[in-house]
Simulated scan of single mutants.
Amino acid sequence: MRQELRDNIVAVCDQKTDNKGADVGLSFYAFFKNKNDSPEALMEVARWWIEIHQLDHFEKAVKIKNMAQSGV
């Protein structure tokens, strides 16, 4: 996954945990606006989330942040 997307994931996870605490869960849709103006990026993150890592629909933001930062 592109570094730009990883950086966005980390920023969103930080914002969510700052606002709602370390136990907050999110889906890959959390990284995009309601208007799908970047279908390629959405599919790239969906592939990373669903196909590569086989994550559940909702995962802890802390877990996702760590995964994005580690480059897995």
Rank of each mutant, 00 (worst) to 15 (best):
D23T: 12
E40H: 09
Q15C: 12
I52P: 05
Y29N: 01
E40W: 09
I52W: 08
H53K: 13
D14N: 12
F58S: 10
C13F: 11
L42H: 08
K35Y: 04
N34F: 13
E44K: 02
S27T: 12
G21W: 01
K16G: 06
Q54T: 02
K35Q: 09
F58Y: 15
G71R: 03
A46I: 06
A30P: 02
W49E: 03
D14M: 03
M43R: 14
E44G: 02
D23A: 15
M43P: 08
A68C: 04
V12T: 12
P39F: 10
F28Q: 06
N34C: 07
K35H: 04
S38D: 15
N19E: 14
E51H: 14
K16R: 14
K60P: 01
V12W: 08
C13N: 11
W48I: 05
K63E: 13
N36C: 07
L55A: 07
G25M: 12
S27E: 11
D37Q: 11
D23H: 08
Q69Y: 04
L55R: 05
S27Y: 08
G21D: 01
N34Y: 13
G25R: 13
F32T: 00
V45G: 01
A30K: 01
S70T: 14
H57I: 11
K63S: 13
K60R: 03
M67H: 07
M43I: 06
F28K: 05
I50D: 03
H57K: 11
A22Q: 07
N34G: 15
P39R: 08
K33F: 11
